[in-house]
Structure formats: C-alpha cells, structure tokens
Design a binder for these strands. Structure first.
Lengths: 232, 232
DNA sequence: TATTAAGTGGGGTTG
DNA sequence: CAACCCCGCTTAATA
C-alpha cells in the first residue's frame, strides 16, 4: 500500500463522470489496484476506482499525471505538488469481519417469536416464494386462518409497503383460492410509513429492541458447550 | 489526520454489531472525528465510525485500547502492537466533487429531447405529482392525446415497472375523466424488465448513450461566454 | 429537523 | 450472467 499526500486534481469517467479541483488530499493506492482519494472529512473517499487494470504516467511542466484504467473507466490524477509519500506493508489474510444483530438474525428470532409477540400469527415458512421474490416469513392468522406474508426490516420505509403489497398481490395471483394479508415487522416504523401501510391494508408490528439480547441468550442456552465468547 | 499502522482488533456496537480479530491494518483518524480501519484490499474501510463525540483510553498489560463513542454507538480498538504513526495536515475547504452524467441531467436532457427521440410524445411537465409521489416527466401522445407518465432511469429494473404502474394508477384515480399510459425511458433495460413492462402495458424507450455528449454540447452552445472548462 | 431519492452505490446470494 | 435484496448503507437536496 502506498500513501501519497499531495496537492492534486482528479477526473473520473466511467459509470458516471466527475471532476475534483486542486486541493491537498491523501491518495491511497492499495496492492489490489484500488485507488482512493480522501480529504479531511468523512469515512468515504471523495473519489475512487476499484479493479484498475492499467496505468499510465505523463509528465508536463514537471507535473505528473497518473491515469488508471479499467473496462470503460478511467481515473486521472494530476499531482501538482507531492508533500509526503509512505509505503506500508499490510499482509494478506485478514480474518475479516463477523457481524451480529443482522437482519438475518432478526428474521430468525422473529420466526421463533412471532406467535408469542403478536398473539395472533403462527409461522409456517421462511423465505417463501411468492412468484415475485421470496417473502421473509409466511404465517397464518390463528383465528381467521388467513395466510399472512411478513416482511421483516430493521427500519421500515414507504418502499417497504410497496414491497409487501407486491408480494401479497403475487401470492393472491398464484393461489387465487386462498386469502392473503400483508404485515410489516420492524424495529422502527416511521409515521408516514405507518399511515401508508394502514391505507394499503398492511398491518405493522413493532419488534422490541430487546430481541437481540433474547436471541443471544437463547443461542447460549442451546449450546451447552461454552463458546469462545463466553470464555473471553 | 492521523494514520496508525498497527496490529489491532476491533469491536463495534451500534446499529449493528461486529468484531474484527487481530491483524495488521491501517487506522485512520480524521480531524472531523471519523474513524476508519482499512486492510490491504478494497476502497471501503472494513470497520468505521463517523461523528464520534467521545473518546477513552485504557491500558492493560502495556496494550492500549481506544474506545470511541457517539449516540448509541461505540467502537473499541485494541492496538496490540503499533508499527508506524503519521500525522498529516489536510486543510479544510476542499472544493468538492462536481458530478455530471447524473440522473438529474439525464432527466433534463430527456425533457428537451423526448419529442425528437420518440416522435410521438410531447412533454408537458417535470416532477408531476401523481398522488403517489412525483413522476419524472408528464407528456402526451401527440396522435392520441393520451397523457403519458414517463419514469426516467439509468438502468430500469422490474421494480421500475411496479413504480410506473403505481403512478399511472394514482393518476387515473385522481383524474378519472382522463386517460393515462406509462412509459419507462432508460439507458439500459434488461430483457426481463422489458417483457414485464410489455405485459403491464408499459412502453419502453431506450435512451442513446450519446445523450451526454449532446447535453454537454447544447450547454456549451447556450453559454456564449467561454466557461472555465473551455479554457482549461 | 425529517423525509426522499440517488449513488461511479457495494456486496453477497440464488437461479 | 442477471436478478434480487441488504447495508451499521452514505449523502445530498428538499419540505
């Protein structure tokens, strides 16, 4: 990896197009060919390019311009004045991130706890194919026996309503002799989404934030063997 | 800005949760409080935190652990062995990125050129409110005088079809005495999307890739004054 | 301040 | 390869 601190300007052309006027910034060139340009703010680079396959240097009036190429993409960096340069060796084989509290785990937890949580829906299947993509959970109303498609989200947005409506429509079309309703289950549901859902006949279920503790506790109970986590 | 090359491990807890085992990586601390951890690959940090508001250092067995805080978030970095450290001054006032070939410009271009391009639609309005969100362009069929809602996209996906169908339905509901049709105009429309659109009675218009050159040319013509771009 | 929509979105998974 | 969907999405514009 190479770090260059320089007064630089950038032009990118590829999927979109952008230009960046001269300013002192950090240029980061990783060994996998990734280029990124950082300024003093934010965690994202202001300009970047991945999977570079070619490289070219031109010098004019003692000013270097580097152009990096890939399929249909080009990133042109003019280094007006270089202040610092560092070579850093980062070894391969990074063990990588392990995540928890993901939507997948939320879905798993809800599948186990939907009936307890709502008191009226009994789960039947996960990732049930609707004909227009799989719905997260298929359940049924215990009293009315109507089938219920449940879309699980961390944060429900208006587009979530559109999504569940599509699934319900697809299910109705595919099984014309059965009844279907739609439910959104989310940790957070904004007012506007709530109103929109109600107007479309979609019910909203708010999942308590404590789900993750409950999930972790149950996981730990199932594994009688102590995990590495318990020891640490 | 501070760059630290270190053998480090990370724990994040906030909107989600994640852990990163020990490995030699780069820690980047920007003056705006942004933390990011990079390995040797990719342009994105593997772990990060923005808008940090607090900081704490603990030392155990000669090993430093830094914990960064923000509302409901915490990033804990244990620096097992520090190899390098660099302080870099990046001035504020970065002029920032200017983009072109954006969807906004595409929409502007199409508004000017829809009639020329299709030979049958005449534009009437941009960002026209349908009752279910604004549609990009409202036009009319020159021959039949039917109103046409046009959704502009760079890449049209099946979801785009659902979107334009919703708009057309909303318009029909709001103006029951008028006729409406839906059109998707995009640079790229995959087969499945094309088929789906046809089945739903939505017409597809493919925008030629040359639109951006035409757009730039016309912009230049309008401004008789030479721009900074022309000079450079 | 909250909401919406675009992004050079990225990235993984499935058919 | 295309389609689909989640992401600790981020970020900018807008009401």
């Amino acid at each position: 990896m190479k770090i260059i601190i320089s007064d630089l300007s950038v032009k990118y052309s590829g999927r979109g197009e952008s230009t960046l006027p001269r300013h002192k910034r950090m240029l980061l060139i990783k060994d996998d060919g990734t280029i990124s340009i950082h300024n003093g703010k934010g965690y994202k680079p202001i300009n970047y390019m991945m999977r570079t396959s070619g490289f070219e240097e031109t010098i004019e009036n003692n000013v270097k311009t580097w152009t990096f190429y890939a399929d249909d993409e080009a990133l042109e960096i003019t280094l007006h004045e270089i202040y610092e340069e560092h070579i850093i060796d980062l070894p391969d084989g990074d063990p990588g991130l392990t995540r928890s509290r993901t939507e997948d785990q939320l879905q798993e937890w809800l599948y186990e706890n939907l009936e307890k949580l709502t008191g009226k829906y009994r789960v039947r299947a996960r990732e049930y194919e609707t004909g227009d993509g799989p719905v997260d959970i298929l359940a049924e109303n215990i009293e009315t026996e109507v089938n219920v498609a449940v879309e699980v989200k961390r944060i429900a947005a208006p587009e979530t309503v559109a999504q569940i409506v599509r699934y319900v429509d697809a299910l109705k079309e595919f099984y014309p002799d059965r009844k279907f309703e739609g439910v959104i289950a989310a940790l957070e549901i904004k007012d506007k989404t709530f109103d929109l859902a109600r107007r479309r006949g979609i019910e909203c279920v708010v999942i308590p934030a404590s789900w993750s503790e409950d999930y972790a506790f149950n996981k730990a109970m199932k594994n009688s063997e102590p995990t590495l986590f318990d020891i640490l």
